[in-house]
Design a protein around this nucleic acid. Sequence first.
DNA 1: AGAGCTATTTGATGCGGGTCAATCCGAAAT
DNA 2: ATTTCGGATTGACCCGCATCAAATAGCTCT
Lengths: 237, 237
Amino acid sequence: MEAARNEARFNNAKYDAAWAIRFRPEPEAARTRPGAHHVRYAARHLVIDEGDAARAVYEVLDGGVILFKLLPDGRRQIIELLGVGDVFGLAVGPVADVAAEALTPVRLAVFEPAAVDADPALRDRLFARLRAQMCALHDHALLLGRKSAQERVATYLMRLVPGRGGLACIGAAPGNAEVRIELRMSRQEIADYLGLTIETVSRTFSALRRANLISYRKQDEVVVPNLCRLCRLTGAH
Amino acid sequence: MEAARNEARFNNAKYDAAWAIRFRPEPEAARTRPGAHHVRYAARHLVIDEGDAARAVYEVLDGGVILFKLLPDGRRQIIELLGVGDVFGLAVGPVADVAAEALTPVRLAVFEPAAVDADPALRDRLFARLRAQMCALHDHALLLGRKSAQERVATYLMRLVPGRGGLACIGAAPGNAEVRIELRMSRQEIADYLGLTIETVSRTFSALRRANLISYRKQDEVVVPNLCRLCRLTGAH
DNA sequence: AGAGCTATTTGATGCGGGTCAATCCGAAAT
DNA sequence: ATTTCGGATTGACCCGCATCAAATAGCTCT
């Protein structure tokens, strides 16, 4: 079933190629972390597999990363969506508790455990970031546990509004401005992130489009004509 | 063969760290935190309300605490179950992102923001704990996003097995031993934690009892005659 | 023991979203 | 253009869990 689908996806080289083309790298932000290794991976590269020995802590310098967990029968849940500045690889104990995969071409800073132990300033930075990611996880638990499919998709879109932290309808900037959103994820990934099936995600997008709450030509470039109206569907306000 | 696999799982420390020994009413552990203010609250006391100014970081010294979020229409999701050693109050901005309520009578250590800023050792301790809680959240996201009602309840029970970190069916101690579990939560709280309704939780408990996987007289004292059989329903193995 | 709660259990019913199965569509190759 | 192939969409149907409603079990207070 879904397991088979995932399996097929993982082993398909053409898919990787298509993906790499589709998600062009962001204009090199040229960030660096003194004293850390830097590495680059192509989109879809599996950086950490669940159960791997925990050999390093990573910080995202460019691009996007997803953390996910699998059940033995193939069900997948994408746990976190990471962007620039986010960190991962911080399991407790010697084993990774989640898998990490590049969503786009990425550049990562790699910190060895010894370096983390030796550098209090680094720990503080990781700590601060972890607090932020923890809040995002809290929000996501609310979404997964209590929101309807439409609320999940609306919340997801609001989170991706560029330059805002998921509360785009609030604050100074006009909530009735038109906004363009790049999803950067396939329907399957959105589904696995939102705890839905690909069909439900697709249907929900279609319903939102029919209601003129969103529009799109390419299926990963969504235009939201009025953020306030979309925000009202998130269940949060 | 089977034994070897079990052994491997047993050594997977993430679960131990994340869930071990949470949640026992420990006869007054008499822990203290030098330099911190200590407070006591009765069960049900609201320690932090969502939206409060973030005035302190807390560590649980005794008892249990729940973190939860509400939607405007009243839907509630319990985000984390905290036990001895866990920390909360670590929002990013100046405002609490979740509410915190005493599940049992609790004793808490209170750290002022200034104290946290001034004490690197404290930050390190908070950091370490946050990593553990983060792993627990990852697990819970998987549960909320992808598990069936029966799997959720079975997972919940396995997590509460005293002295083991959620993998009680494995390891040296006999998985076929009889184990007594104190839930210490109402059906409503269990439902809000597992992303279900109270009726579904109740029905699932009844079904498990009918199948002789659990038994109970008081509805918050569950006896599991055979952990292995219950563990098989969690979806995780 | 009995009254009056509230929490839990059980039953009946409906719906949201999952499952299965066809298309449809767009990018790449020919 | 035409073919091809994988992803997305749409449709038909079904099932697990929510919802609504009623019965029962535990509590506390007389």
